[in-house]
Protein backbone atom coordinates (compact mmCIF):
# COMPACT_ATOMS: atom_id res chain seq x y z
CA UNK A 1 0.00 0.00 0.00
CA UNK A 2 1.36 3.40 -0.90
CA UNK A 3 1.88 5.72 1.99
CA UNK A 4 -0.11 8.89 2.26
CA UNK A 5 1.24 12.32 3.05
CA UNK A 6 -0.06 12.09 6.62
CA UNK A 7 1.95 8.95 7.27
CA UNK A 8 5.11 10.49 5.87
CA UNK A 9 4.69 13.56 8.07
CA UNK A 10 4.13 11.39 11.13
CA UNK A 11 7.13 9.23 10.30
CA UNK A 12 9.43 12.22 9.95
CA UNK A 13 8.19 13.50 13.29
CA UNK A 14 8.57 10.05 14.86
CA UNK A 15 12.12 9.59 13.58
CA UNK A 16 13.13 12.93 15.03
CA UNK A 17 11.44 12.47 18.42
CA UNK A 18 12.46 8.84 18.95
CA UNK A 19 15.94 9.66 17.71
CA UNK A 20 16.23 12.44 20.29
CA UNK A 21 14.92 10.21 23.10
CA UNK A 22 17.20 7.30 22.16
CA UNK A 23 20.22 9.60 21.90
CA UNK A 24 19.31 11.13 25.25
CA UNK A 25 19.39 7.68 26.81
CA UNK A 26 22.87 6.85 25.52
CA UNK A 27 24.77 10.13 25.44
CA UNK A 28 25.17 10.43 29.25
CA UNK A 29 27.14 7.18 29.20
CA UNK A 30 29.36 8.38 26.40
CA UNK A 31 29.99 11.52 28.43
CA UNK A 32 31.19 9.46 31.37
CA UNK A 33 33.40 7.43 29.03
CA UNK A 34 34.84 10.60 27.51
CA UNK A 35 35.44 12.08 30.95
CA UNK A 36 37.29 8.99 32.08
CA UNK A 37 39.64 9.34 29.10
CA UNK A 38 40.61 12.89 29.92
CA UNK A 39 43.82 13.74 31.69
CA UNK A 40 43.42 14.75 35.31
CA UNK A 41 45.32 17.94 34.59
CA UNK A 42 42.91 19.15 31.96
CA UNK A 43 39.95 18.28 34.19
CA UNK A 44 41.36 20.33 37.07
CA UNK A 45 42.10 23.21 34.71
CA UNK A 46 39.01 23.28 32.50
CA UNK A 47 36.59 20.71 33.88
CA UNK A 48 35.13 17.71 32.08
CA UNK A 49 34.44 18.35 28.44
CA UNK A 50 32.34 16.52 25.90
CA UNK A 51 35.31 15.56 23.77
CA UNK A 52 38.77 15.27 25.35
CA UNK A 53 41.57 17.16 23.59
CA UNK A 54 43.65 14.05 23.71
CA UNK A 55 42.99 10.59 25.06
CA UNK A 56 44.64 9.77 28.33
CA UNK A 57 44.51 6.33 29.89
CA UNK A 58 46.18 7.18 33.21
CA UNK A 59 43.06 6.56 35.28
CA UNK A 60 42.59 3.11 33.75
CA UNK A 61 46.26 2.30 34.30
CA UNK A 62 45.82 2.87 38.02
CA UNK A 63 42.69 0.74 38.06
CA UNK A 64 44.33 -2.18 36.30
CA UNK A 65 47.59 -1.88 38.22
CA UNK A 66 45.96 -2.80 41.50
CA UNK A 67 42.70 -4.50 40.61
CA UNK A 68 42.42 -6.61 43.77
CA UNK A 69 39.52 -4.74 45.39
CA UNK A 70 37.58 -4.42 42.15
CA UNK A 71 38.07 -8.06 41.20
CA UNK A 72 36.95 -9.12 44.64
CA UNK A 73 33.80 -7.00 44.37
CA UNK A 74 33.16 -8.48 40.92
CA UNK A 75 33.51 -11.93 42.46
CA UNK A 76 31.05 -11.12 45.25
CA UNK A 77 28.51 -9.70 42.78
CA UNK A 78 28.80 -12.64 40.40
CA UNK A 79 28.46 -15.16 43.23
CA UNK A 80 25.46 -13.44 44.79
CA UNK A 81 23.72 -12.92 41.48
CA UNK A 82 24.31 -16.49 40.32
CA UNK A 83 23.54 -18.31 43.56
CA UNK A 84 20.71 -15.98 44.55
CA UNK A 85 18.96 -16.24 41.21
CA UNK A 86 19.16 -20.04 41.10
CA UNK A 87 17.93 -20.51 44.66
CA UNK A 88 15.17 -17.99 44.15
CA UNK A 89 13.94 -19.55 40.89
CA UNK A 90 13.99 -23.07 42.31
CA UNK A 91 11.94 -22.36 45.43
CA UNK A 92 9.72 -19.74 43.77
CA UNK A 93 8.61 -22.17 41.10
CA UNK A 94 8.13 -24.90 43.69
CA UNK A 95 5.84 -22.64 45.74
CA UNK A 96 4.09 -21.48 42.57
CA UNK A 97 3.40 -25.09 41.61
CA UNK A 98 1.76 -25.73 44.98
CA UNK A 99 -0.41 -22.63 44.55
CA UNK A 100 -1.41 -23.77 41.06
CA UNK A 101 -2.46 -27.30 42.13
CA UNK A 102 -6.23 -27.32 42.40
CA UNK A 103 -6.29 -30.25 44.83
CA UNK A 104 -4.47 -28.18 47.47
CA UNK A 105 -7.38 -27.08 49.61
CA UNK A 106 -5.68 -24.11 51.26
CA UNK A 107 -3.96 -22.74 48.18
CA UNK A 108 -5.93 -19.48 48.22
CA UNK A 109 -5.11 -18.95 51.87
CA UNK A 110 -1.43 -19.57 51.11
CA UNK A 111 -1.54 -17.15 48.17
CA UNK A 112 -3.07 -14.50 50.40
CA UNK A 113 -0.45 -15.21 53.08
CA UNK A 114 2.17 -14.24 50.48
CA UNK A 115 0.20 -11.39 48.93
CA UNK A 116 -0.53 -9.69 52.23
CA UNK A 117 3.18 -8.89 52.62
CA UNK A 118 2.93 -6.58 49.60
CA UNK A 119 0.05 -4.68 51.22
CA UNK A 120 1.48 -4.15 54.66
CA UNK A 121 4.90 -4.34 56.24
CA UNK A 122 6.50 -3.43 59.51
CA UNK A 123 8.70 -0.77 57.98
CA UNK A 124 12.44 -0.39 58.06
CA UNK A 125 13.07 -0.06 61.80
CA UNK A 126 11.81 -3.47 63.01
CA UNK A 127 13.36 -5.19 59.98
CA UNK A 128 16.70 -3.52 60.60
CA UNK A 129 16.69 -4.40 64.29
CA UNK A 130 15.67 -7.98 63.58
CA UNK A 131 18.48 -8.60 61.09
CA UNK A 132 21.11 -6.80 63.14
CA UNK A 133 20.25 -7.36 66.77
CA UNK A 134 18.16 -10.52 66.86
CA UNK A 135 19.21 -12.73 63.93
CA UNK A 136 22.69 -11.17 63.84
CA UNK A 137 23.18 -11.96 60.17
CA UNK A 138 24.51 -8.57 59.15
CA UNK A 139 27.95 -8.52 57.54
CA UNK A 140 27.44 -11.88 55.86
CA UNK A 141 26.70 -13.43 52.51
CA UNK A 142 23.51 -14.69 54.11
CA UNK A 143 21.94 -11.25 54.26
CA UNK A 144 23.23 -10.31 50.79
CA UNK A 145 21.47 -13.40 49.44
CA UNK A 146 18.34 -13.34 51.60
CA UNK A 147 17.41 -9.70 51.21
CA UNK A 148 15.07 -9.58 48.24
CA UNK A 149 15.41 -13.27 47.48
CA UNK A 150 11.71 -13.91 46.85
CA UNK A 151 9.25 -11.58 45.23
CA UNK A 152 5.56 -12.36 45.67
CA UNK A 153 4.64 -10.92 42.30
CA UNK A 154 7.12 -13.22 40.52
CA UNK A 155 5.74 -16.25 42.34
CA UNK A 156 2.20 -15.31 41.34
CA UNK A 157 3.30 -14.80 37.72
CA UNK A 158 4.86 -18.28 37.66
CA UNK A 159 1.67 -19.68 39.19
CA UNK A 160 -0.40 -18.07 36.44
CA UNK A 161 1.96 -19.50 33.85
CA UNK A 162 1.68 -23.00 35.31
CA UNK A 163 -2.11 -22.76 35.49
CA UNK A 164 -2.23 -21.69 31.86
CA UNK A 165 0.30 -24.00 30.25
CA UNK A 166 0.74 -27.11 32.39
CA UNK A 167 -2.50 -29.13 32.24
CA UNK A 168 -3.72 -30.68 35.50
CA UNK A 169 -4.02 -34.03 33.76
CA UNK A 170 -0.22 -34.30 33.59
CA UNK A 171 0.10 -34.21 37.36
CA UNK A 172 -2.92 -36.47 37.83
CA UNK A 173 -1.75 -39.21 35.50
CA UNK A 174 1.77 -39.14 36.95
CA UNK A 175 0.22 -39.49 40.38
CA UNK A 176 -1.74 -42.53 39.32
CA UNK A 177 1.53 -44.02 38.10
CA UNK A 178 2.80 -43.68 41.66
CA UNK A 179 5.11 -40.66 41.38
CA UNK A 180 5.07 -38.34 44.38
CA UNK A 181 4.39 -34.63 44.03
CA UNK A 182 7.99 -33.53 44.42
CA UNK A 183 9.09 -35.95 41.71
CA UNK A 184 6.31 -34.76 39.42
CA UNK A 185 7.46 -31.19 39.93
CA UNK A 186 11.12 -31.95 39.34
CA UNK A 187 10.86 -34.23 36.33
CA UNK A 188 7.72 -33.03 34.57
CA UNK A 189 6.68 -29.52 35.59
CA UNK A 190 10.01 -27.75 36.07
CA UNK A 191 11.29 -28.47 32.55
CA UNK A 192 8.07 -27.00 31.13
CA UNK A 193 8.67 -23.70 32.91
CA UNK A 194 11.81 -22.72 31.00
CA UNK A 195 10.33 -19.70 29.18
CA UNK A 196 8.86 -18.08 32.28
CA UNK A 197 11.90 -18.92 34.42
CA UNK A 198 14.25 -17.37 31.86
CA UNK A 199 12.30 -14.14 31.93
CA UNK A 200 11.74 -13.98 35.69
CA UNK A 201 15.32 -15.09 36.30
CA UNK A 202 16.59 -12.07 34.43
CA UNK A 203 14.57 -9.72 36.60
CA UNK A 204 15.84 -11.44 39.74
CA UNK A 205 19.43 -11.40 38.49
CA UNK A 206 19.24 -7.71 37.64
CA UNK A 207 17.89 -7.03 41.11
CA UNK A 208 20.81 -8.83 42.74
CA UNK A 209 23.41 -7.32 40.43
CA UNK A 210 22.26 -3.74 41.01
CA UNK A 211 21.65 -4.10 44.74
CA UNK A 212 23.66 -1.74 46.91
CA UNK A 213 20.95 -1.01 49.48
CA UNK A 214 21.44 -4.24 51.45
CA UNK A 215 25.14 -3.49 51.82
CA UNK A 216 24.44 0.10 52.79
CA UNK A 217 22.24 -1.14 55.63
CA UNK A 218 24.05 -4.22 56.79
CA UNK A 219 27.59 -4.62 55.47
CA UNK A 220 30.59 -2.82 56.90
CA UNK A 221 33.16 -5.45 56.01
CA UNK A 222 34.85 -4.27 52.80
CA UNK A 223 35.83 -7.84 51.94
CA UNK A 224 32.28 -8.89 51.09
CA UNK A 225 30.86 -5.81 49.41
CA UNK A 226 29.39 -6.22 45.93
CA UNK A 227 30.42 -4.14 42.96
CA UNK A 228 27.65 -1.54 43.05
CA UNK A 229 28.29 -0.72 46.69
CA UNK A 230 32.02 -0.48 46.03
CA UNK A 231 31.23 2.00 43.29
CA UNK A 232 28.94 3.92 45.64
CA UNK A 233 31.69 4.19 48.22
CA UNK A 234 34.18 5.30 45.59
CA UNK A 235 31.86 8.06 44.39
CA UNK A 236 30.79 9.19 47.84
CA UNK A 237 33.89 9.05 49.98
CA UNK A 238 36.70 11.07 48.47
CA UNK A 239 39.48 8.97 49.96
CA UNK A 240 38.02 5.55 49.32
CA UNK A 241 39.25 5.05 45.77
CA UNK A 242 42.71 6.04 46.87
CA UNK A 243 42.52 3.64 49.78
CA UNK A 244 41.66 0.62 47.69
CA UNK A 245 44.18 1.42 44.96
CA UNK A 246 47.10 2.41 47.14
CA UNK A 247 47.51 -1.13 48.45
CA UNK A 248 50.05 -1.12 45.69
CA UNK A 249 52.95 0.43 47.62
CA UNK A 250 54.48 1.92 44.50
CA UNK A 251 51.59 4.34 44.11
CA UNK A 252 51.73 7.39 46.31
CA UNK A 253 48.20 8.38 47.34
CA UNK A 254 48.76 11.97 46.30
CA UNK A 255 49.52 11.00 42.69
CA UNK A 256 46.17 9.35 42.09
CA UNK A 257 43.93 11.15 39.62
CA UNK A 258 40.82 11.56 41.79
CA UNK A 259 38.20 12.91 39.41
CA UNK A 260 38.95 10.84 36.31
CA UNK A 261 39.46 7.77 38.47
CA UNK A 262 35.86 7.94 39.66
CA UNK A 263 34.60 7.89 36.10
CA UNK A 264 37.04 5.17 35.03
CA UNK A 265 35.83 2.98 37.88
CA UNK A 266 32.22 3.69 36.90
CA UNK A 267 33.00 2.47 33.38
CA UNK A 268 34.82 -0.62 34.65
CA UNK A 269 31.91 -1.46 36.96
CA UNK A 270 29.13 -0.78 34.44
CA UNK A 271 30.79 -1.88 31.19
CA UNK A 272 29.85 -5.56 31.26
CA UNK A 273 26.14 -4.80 31.76
CA UNK A 274 26.21 -2.43 28.81
CA UNK A 275 27.65 -5.16 26.60
CA UNK A 276 25.34 -7.85 27.92
CA UNK A 277 21.95 -6.17 28.07
CA UNK A 278 21.21 -6.00 24.33
CA UNK A 279 21.32 -9.80 24.29
CA UNK A 280 18.95 -10.34 27.21
CA UNK A 281 16.61 -7.46 26.43
CA UNK A 282 14.23 -9.58 24.36
CA UNK A 283 13.76 -12.01 27.27
CA UNK A 284 12.80 -9.04 29.41
CA UNK A 285 10.15 -8.12 26.90
CA UNK A 286 8.95 -11.73 26.91
CA UNK A 287 8.78 -11.59 30.69
CA UNK A 288 6.64 -8.48 30.57
CA UNK A 289 4.18 -10.13 28.21
CA UNK A 290 3.98 -13.23 30.39
CA UNK A 291 3.42 -11.05 33.43
CA UNK A 292 0.70 -9.10 31.69
CA UNK A 293 -1.51 -12.18 31.40
CA UNK A 294 -3.78 -11.90 34.39
CA UNK A 295 -4.87 -15.09 36.08
Amino acid sequence: MSRGRDEIILNVFAYIMIGVIAAGCVIPFLMVLMGSLQSEDSVLRNGFSLIPEQLDFTAYRYVFDSPAAILRAYGVSIFITGAGTLISLYFSSMAAYVLARKDVKYRNALAFYLFFTTLFNGGLVPYYLMIKNYLKIDNSFTILLLSGMFNVIYILIIRTYIAGSVPDSISESAKIDGANDFKIFMSIVLPLLKPVLAAIGLFIALGYWNDWYTSLLFVTNDKIIPLQYLLYKILTFARFSQQILSQNAAVAVIDLPGETLKLALTIVATGPIIFLYPFVQKHFVAGLTIGAVKG
Binding site: I21, C25, L206, L231, T266, Y277
Partner: peptide
Protein backbone atom coordinates in the same frame (compact mmCIF):
# COMPACT_ATOMS: atom_id res chain seq x y z
CA UNK B 1 19.12 2.47 23.39
CA UNK B 2 16.03 3.47 25.35
CA UNK B 3 16.36 0.33 27.46
CA UNK B 4 19.92 1.09 28.51
CA UNK B 5 19.14 3.23 31.58
CA UNK B 6 16.80 0.54 32.90
CA UNK B 7 19.65 -1.94 33.27
CA UNK B 8 22.10 0.17 35.20
CA UNK B 9 22.05 0.82 38.92
CA UNK B 10 21.19 4.15 40.48
CA UNK B 11 24.80 4.29 41.62
CA UNK B 12 25.88 4.62 38.02
CA UNK B 13 23.19 7.23 37.48
CA UNK B 14 24.70 9.15 40.39
CA UNK B 15 28.08 9.02 38.62
Amino acid sequence: FMFLPYFISWVTVAA
